[in-house]
Write a protein that binds this DNA or RNA. Structure first.
Lengths: 204, 204
DNA sequence: GCAGAGTGTTTTACTCGTAAAACACCTGCT
DNA sequence: AGCAGGTGTTTTACGAGTAAAACACTCTGC
């Protein structure tokens, strides 16, 4: 939906680039599913479910399926500018985290901040330091701990990419007018607070 | 997305379970980033960026970052009911697609419908048919083509899971009231139509 | 009829992420 | 001191997805 596909929400049975996987979304090797008249892809899936199981409350699909599908499509779109810089998104996330916090971070902190596993961060840091975008130094109090920081090249790269990326994203979102964007950001924020409170700690 | 992390949108530098990766979201081995006061995780990241780059238009992050983070959190939450049935989401997507369309599908059609690559579908079908949830037969006109359908066991499994899954999703979304949910579904639908039109075919 | 182009599906080689184990080190207790 | 238990990081083994190549087959035009 990592963004796998799955369907609208979990129960959609493939609403596209949604839940399970992170989902493909460009259709990949296979062509796009052809924009359906009468709504988005999710609406079509919902209609199919309702036809097969008339009693079903498909409400959750309309939100979860769409969130997942949007995430999949956006992710794909967003990859373009980063790819030009030779970075994957998880790699950029590491760099961005270091840049926005403004100080050195330990691998554990980076893992928490990027919602990644420690092992994944270890691998990314290895690649990024081989490319000279990041540097490490050991803590001298506690020799288990490492401190990671951006090199000048890393910092410059982030500062170059960020405006490009935001501009690109702006263009991608342009289909929605200003008020719609604000309303959407607001509602997603509300939902996110709930989800982070509920799922962030413990397990629902 | 898992929603990996990435940041708010692509340019957030890790807003969590967002763009690049599909992102982790439960914090995994590392603990959760601790719910921040003054908004969701994305709001915190946005504030950090604005402090470092005051001129930046962080608008896109507030939507894209949140969509990605929501997708990541929801994906994780949704996994629970499926896991109990011993299915991954991409696997369930295949079954669900067959169920909701109501007829046999070829592997290519399944790939299009689930936004997966053909290779991924091949693997999933292999596993599902080993478990007796799905059956294949060859087309007798065109011997390249296969037709896949649910077995009775597969159909029953889907029909058992769907209501559980939707109920679970309903509970997860309960933090938002009915009006909020409708508004959110509506706005996401609008955005999705734009994205599917723009990104679905060709490349932006 | 038969080459050549095209399509549906599978295989191959590879990348990346994860979970769990392994390490390395600190800390508190005795 | 010395050891038990805990924490930070890396390594290992593996599963899953992808892109590209390989297959298998059909169709078109000559």
């Amino acid at each position: 939906m990592t963004a796998g596909s799955g369907g609208t929400g979990a129960a959609d049975g493939a609403v596209g680039g949604t839940v399970t996987g992170t989902g493909r979304l460009d259709g990949g090797p296979a062509g796009p599913p052809a924009p359906v008249n009468g709504g988005d892809t999710v609406a079509k899936v919902v209609r199919q479910w309702r036809a097969v199981h008339p009693g079903l409350d498909t409400g959750p699909m309309e939100i979860i399926g769409r969130v997942n599908r949007c995430a999949a499509l956006l992710q794909q779109a967003e990859d373009a500018p980063l790819r030009r810089a030779g970075l994957t998104r998880p790699e950029f996330d590491v760099l961005g985290t270091l840049r926005r916090t403004g100080h050195e971070l330990t691998p554990s902190e980076i893992a928490r901040e990027t919602f990644s596993s420690g092992a994944a961060v270890t691998k990314r840091l290895k690649q990024l330091s081989e490319r000279g975008l990041v540097e490490r130094r050991g803590d001298d109090r506690d020799r288990r701990v490492a401190h990671v920081r951006l090199t000048d090249a890393g910092r410059d790269l982030v500062d170059t990419i960020i405006p490009e990326q935001l501009g690109y994203e702006s263009a991608v979102l342009a289909g929605l007018d200003g008020a719609g964007q604000r309303a959407l950001a607001e509602l997603l924020g509300e939902l996110l607070i709930q989800l982070e409170g509920r799922l962030g700690s413990s397990h629902l």
